[in-house]
């Protein structure tokens, strides 16, 4: 409760709006985000949360000409997972890698950088929701273009964030990011294998118990 009471709303708002400085000067922005304490974890959480909210809205209230999913099979938890899990994997995989590659960033820094990098996608996707109700199917190219700009911007910001947080050169930032993607693949593979082994193990024990109980 104490932490909540000491929560400085003005500081929070300042760290939230700092993202616009990042838009203008990504490199300096991400450097100061970490090293000058301009960013806050609260703002990072806010961006992730906003991303989830915007993606849910995009899939539910956009005009069906551009986003059409079967509402019978729509699952809000899935949208949640689609954002949280990659985020989590990226942070863990990147941190694991960069500690070996003289990265300066801490886990919380990586998370903060990635969360701040989401901002352009949040803004563009949010703006596209009302726009989707004004455009027609023939103008889908425009819609797609803006979606792609959002993604491209996000990727660029993420690279800048990784560069500044770990104090890398650009080439190293790109290389470590590619390796991170590979590491995510390895983590997923081990995860799936682990679960398969566990379930097989449990099945084995169950069948063993059944066998024994029938013999008795």
């Amino acid at each position: 409760m104490a932490s909540l009471r000491s929560f400085d709303f003005r500081e929070y708002l300042k760290s939230l709006l700092y993202v616009f400085y990042i838009f203008r000067k990504p490199l300096a922005g991400f450097w100061d985000l970490i090293h000058e304490g301009k960013g806050s974890m609260a703002a990072a959480h806010t961006f992730v949360l906003l991303m989830i909210v915007v993606q849910v809205l995009r899939q539910t209230v956009s005009n069906f000409q551009f986003v059409n999913i079967n509402m019978e099979s729509f699952n809000i938890v899935m949208v949640f997972m689609q954002i949280i899990i990659p985020m989590f994997l990226w942070c863990v995989a990147n941190w694991s890698l960069t500690t070996l590659l003289d990265g300066k960033g801490k886990l919380s820094h990586i998370y903060m950088g990635a969360a701040y990098a989401l901002a352009p996608m949040i803004i563009i996707d949010a703006a596209l929701i009302p726009v989707s109700h004004v455009l027609t199917y023939d103008e889908a190219m425009l819609y797609d273009m803006f979606t792609q700009i959002g993604i491209g911007w996000f990727v660029l910001l993420l690279l800048c964030a990784m560069k500044e947080i770990h104090d890398y050169s650009f080439a190293k930032a790109i290389g470590s990011s590619l390796l991170t993607v590979l590491a995510i693949g390895i983590i997923l593979f081990i995860f799936i294998m682990f679960f398969a082994v566990i379930s097989d193990g449990i099945a084995y024990v169950i069948s063993l118990i059944q066998e024994i109980s029938m013999r008795l």
Partner: peptide, 12 residues
């Protein structure tokens, strides 16, 4: 019936 193209034409 989820016909985006037809909808787009009417909507224009």
């Amino acid at each position: 019936e989820n016909d985006a193209q037809g909808y787009g034409r009417a909507f224009r």
